[in-house]
Design a protein around this nucleic acid. Structure first.
Lengths: 200, 200
DNA sequence: TGACAAGCAGAACGGTCGTTCTGTAGTCTC
DNA sequence: GAGACTACAGAACGACCGTTCTGCTTGTCA
């Protein structure tokens, strides 16, 4: 009964409400606002709860002692099986997977990362559809076999990079489109780092 | 000379430093910390600068008058054309597109949103490939035509939801797979809200 | 050369922050 | 049924917050 009881109980609803608040405002509110959010009327108790979330890794402090989201605050559950997904709250279950956030999953270097909407269906066989957004890391070079964004006639073109005797070529992933063999230098804008699609 | 001069000048370095701070701590700091961050020694001047960023849409206030990021704070450039993408700084150029962040683009309700890795190729014709991650909003009901995640034999199944005389059925987007006609009740886990794919 | 606005510093001030301490109602244990 | 523990409420307090006002440079334009 006393085994592994050092883990104080923390209310999953509290975490969810705070996460939803953060999703709306992108900021951790003050203790008094938190009290209202959680239906608590004593700041002292808010302080207690915050400490527990801090110990659990959901909240943290800046060097200036301002409350901020902790490492686990943004964790979005990756559900591998319904059993696992049916568990009530990631905060309470152990042995689950998570990624910190979708942004962090796709964007390694924010300053060099650009989103490019996909036009046309020249890459459908690679699962790249019209309306998708490509996550592109800007860089002037790429390797053969990578999907690259090149600039052709002042327009973005998404294609596989390949090499022929005459030089680099751009290959579509759709038989209805021809291989592009640039006359001069091939200007590469960046390489594909990921893809984002919004449904509904 | 006086035409359109109501736009006060705002230092792009200030914005960048604040964005970097925010990227690290996920929180807007206090005026005194901001002063240090910006190399200013008077809070009064910080207040001035904040007001300008607020007017420009980079900062905002919560209902409780706490400083928070504004709509333009997170803008990650969506590049429609190479010309546009080459511009040096989005803060200074006008007529650009942006999305706040990839997370916000895909996730509306964090507490009900789950990531599910895709197994198999039964939905390739819908551009859903093995290894992709589905962004799923948990809910027990869905409409015909939507891509849903259902629970069949204790496993997740991603399919189109459709209706036949006998009831709801799950249709794959790949001719090699059969339509699934559940015997009992069809248990819907959630509906697809988006898709994320990481390359390399 | 003088007027005027902009960029910044510094001090004063009321309000709000988070901490701490005390108190109480319920519940579980032995 | 006494003690201990948990989940809260409420008040007190010093520190810090953001605002405001005053004042000093510096550059610009006439």
């Amino acid at each position: 009964m006393s085994a592994n009881n050092n883990q104080k109980q923390l209310d999953p609803q509290y975490l969810e409400r705070l996460q939803d608040y953060y999703a709306e405002h992108k900021v951790i509110p003050s203790y008094s606002v938190l009290a209202g959010l959680w239906g608590i009327s004593a700041k002292s108790w808010v302080s207690q709860c915050v400490k527990r979330f801090e110990e659990a890794g959901f909240l943290d402090w800046t060097p200036d002692r301002q409350l901020k989201p902790g490492k686990r605050f943004f964790e979005r559950r990756v559900a591998h099986s319904p059993v696992q997904a049916g568990l009530p709250n990631p905060a309470l279950s152990s042995g689950y997977d998570y990624v910190s956030s979708i942004d962090e999953m796709l964007v390694r270097v924010p300053s060099r990362t650009v989103l490019i909407p996909v036009k046309g269906d020249s890459m459908v066989d690679a699962g790249i559809h019209e309306g998708d957004h490509l996550v592109v890391e800007k860089q002037p070079h790429a390797n053969v076999g990578q999907i690259v964004v090149a600039i052709v006639d002042d327009e973005f073109t998404v294609k596989y990079l390949d090499r022929e005797k005459a030089g680099f070529v751009l290959k579509p992933a759709n038989k209805a489109y021809p291989v592009i063999r640039p006359k001069g230098r091939l200007e590469i804008f960046g390489v594909m780092a990921g893809l984002v699609r919004r449904t509904r």
